[in-house]
Amino acid sequence: MSLKKLLKPFKLISIAHKSGVVTVLYPYQKPLITTEFRGKISIDATKCMGCGACVNACPPNALTLSRRDDTIVLNYFIGRCIFCGRCAEVCPVGAITVTHEFELASASTRDLNESLVHRVEKCSGCGGGLGATSRMLQYVILRSPASENYVHLCPNCRKKKLIQSLAMKMGARTEDYEG
């Protein structure tokens, strides 16, 4: 065996010298994150309309929507989130942005939950729950202005209104339908 070959492992010194120290004193020095990094999401409460598109797309069910009589609650549980950013992609109003935040460990699960409470609009006819938020209604009106007349009514009242207007066209009197 030649001496050159025998001494080859010592090349390590030159390699190590050239590359210097590559580890960092985390957490005192921040690790390198590129611009493309996907961290936790942030939901803009002023834009979100509670439609639930993100909930349908979310692969691990980190986003959930719970509907009650007068509220719609969008809950984001960071503990389940896989940071894929699908929600940001499908959000129709661009309320979700993907941040660079990733240091999310916490001693309490409460810190891992973020909730957004939407108030449900009341039906302008009967005053019952409409199942939609006011922003959702605005969104629908913006997309199809013709819907403005009946979008504030619940399906029952809408049906009523339709029958009423049809009947009126056929010549019925209004008082027949009161009470």
Partner: peptide, 15 residues
């Protein structure tokens, strides 16, 4: 041994 560990780390390119 502590000094050795520091030197070994240098050769490994770590702190």
């Amino acid at each position: 041994d502590g000094i050795e560990r520091k030197i070994r780390a240098k050769l490994h390119s770590r702190i």
